[in-house]
Design a protein around this nucleic acid. Structure first.
Lengths: 235, 235
DNA sequence: CGTGCTTTTGAATAGTATCAAGGCCGGTGG
DNA sequence: CCACCGGCCTTGATACTATTCAAAAGCACG
């Protein structure tokens, strides 16, 4: 496969394209590498050395934190334009893994070039800063939810999260391949509980199980389940 | 009280002092305001408009996310040099509250000045970016822990977190005033469980209860309790 | 030396995890 | 094309952990 040059890339959400000057976009384009990851391949492996950043050109990815016992926690989902491995510009190891949920095309930029890019493109640093602060905000909320919600609510939230990130296809199925295990790792429980809960949602006519796929029938119903955990701010 | 000028401020952890040019430090010094918050006063109130950022000159703060039901989750602790309200440089509302755990002196810089500062001091943006990415990393780990650990482990972790952030005094007591409710909100449970668990730790000779204060007797013991949840990376 | 708030402890209940078994589905090879 | 195999999903029974409710004791402050 031929690598897509940044100039010709159509991904409008890419931070590089959004915030870097044309000459720097060109430099990055020349230096970057591009890799295609098949479904279930690891893009980043927890514990390996941080060599640079990954930019998802097109794909669907789960970011996973693994405990010693092997239990996994899905920390967030990511898709086109999102960044992976953005921890520690210095010398460190990746604290998380990232796994392709379906075939994904990813650009990679090495550390040294990154530092130059940041100093020369203050807008990029600011853009990333804002991006991070929003990520922080999201994950703080999710942390509260994981701590306070009961299982039913957490499963509802997980479905909504996946829907928000990956959307639905024409048949209103969640538009990403996933197993019950994935939902369990998002929620922090086991597959049996997920199965039970999905069955309950199905009999409540909120979703429909179609093989391993899940059809969202009543988004508002799921939202209602978790609504008590969210403040409504006046505009 | 007279406001401390940035030039004379002795806080070496302040991002402004670390990353801004002398002339910008001066500008900020002139424009900033400074407020003293007494114990249990709210520095930031969830839902209010974001007007700028707070820099803790000296103090001890808990950052709290509140559910509609009033249940609170302590998202992180902060002390000297840490930033508060660093969410959304645009127009938004604070998604979290920040409460002084003891008397705290805080500097405040308004939004408009901040954007100028960021554009003129790329090192500051980069510094903050790195800061954020580390915060993200920390909270992702904590999220996994809250999801996977049992109560005993979570309480041990909460004690270690507080110890790491605020340290111990000469008597080896946690060097910050807190209630059982604070630990409960960190862990995501209720005061009764905390009380029981502290009693258990006490009989295991890991801590000692001295009124509401907690003496850490065996840090290694607490660490051992949670060690199974942490990967050991080779250097 | 009350009074109100925090902490502790106990007992009953609810919620979740675990263990075990069987069913379903997709893919592969005969 | 069909039978079989393995992985994923579902369901039930049981054990365990955490929550809730209630009541009493401790402590801090006026």
């Amino acid at each position: 496969m031929r690598k897509t040059s940044c100039e010709l890339c159509t991904n409008v959400n890419c931070f590089v394209k959004m915030y870097c000057s044309p000459e720097w976009i060109h430099k990055i384009s020349l230096s970057k590498s591009q890799v295609y990851f098949k479904q279930n391949q690891e893009i980043i492996k927890e514990g390996e050395l941080v060599l640079g950043m990954f930019f998802i050109q097109q794909g669907k990815v789960k970011v996973v934190s693994t405990g010693l016992d092997g239990r996994q926690q899905i920390v967030r989902f990511a898709n086109d334009g999102h960044i992976l491995g953005h921890r520690g510009l210095g010398y460190e190891r990746y604290p998380i893994s990232a796994v392709a949920m379906e075939g994904s095309l990813v650009c990679f930029v090495v550390n040294d070039l990154l530092s130059e890019v940041f100093m020369a493109n203050p807008k990029l640093s600011m853009g990333l800063m804002v991006f991070y602060s929003r990520e922080l905000r999201k994950i703080e909320t999710r942390m509260k939810n994981i701590a306070h919600m009961n299982l039913r609510e957490k499963v509802a939230e997980a479905l909504l999260l996946m829907m928000e990130m990956f959307g639905l296809n024409k048949e209103h199925e969640l538009n990403v391949p996933f197993t019950r295990e994935d939902i369990a790792s998002t929620v922090g429980t086991n597959v049996e509980q997920i199965s039970r809960q999905l069955t309950e949602f199905e009999s409540a006519k909120l979703i429909q199980k179609r093989g391993r796929k899940v059809v969202i029938l009543k988004k508002a119903g799921l939202e209602h389940i978790i609504s008590k955990h969210f403040m409504q701010y006046a505009k």
